[in-house]
Amino acid sequence: MADLQKENLLLEVLKNHFNDKIFDLKVQRHQRVHLRTTTEQIEAVLLYLKEKLGYKHLSHISCVDWIEENRFELVYILWHPEDKINVLVKVDVDRLNPVAPNIDYIWPQANTYEREMREMFGIQFPGLVGRKELILEDWDDLPPMRRDFDTLQYVMENFEFRSGREDAQNVRETIAKRTGEEIPEFAKKYSR
């Protein structure tokens, strides 16, 4: 087990600088540090990590929909090329009014991630430039990566099943009917 000296030192530096503006600090394991902050502080935290501490590489920005807790969780994953630590900075965004600061002036590639989140989760980033449509086209439904977007319902409403295959919706049953076999009891449970 590698020692966690560098990781603990980083937490101490951040704690001294930001006091109670960051919370839930934890060393998950060797080379992984988690912390949480607020949308007001996120730019300051990211800029401090990048400019002062040398977390130059933005690996990833992710978004998780915690619908039952009424929040989106944005996760900024940074990497230090010399210290070799990944920091996961998390921030909660209100699900009913999802607005988060735009950070593409810190890292240009954040632009793509934010455009994708705007499209897939409906999170607004004030001042974000770039085409409105990244992956989807003419989309006016609920943003599709939200948990309450019903994929099956969308398919039923917008697509037609190919005609002539009405009987083939349930493969196992159809085969059984055609061949006159009986479906065993254990298989019925999983047939659909």
Binding site: K56, H57, L58, S59, P81, W107, P108, Q109
Partner: peptide, 8 residues
């Protein structure tokens, strides 16, 4: 600029 631009 490479690391900042996310080159890997």
């Amino acid at each position: 600029k490479a690391i900042e631009w996310g080159v890997v």
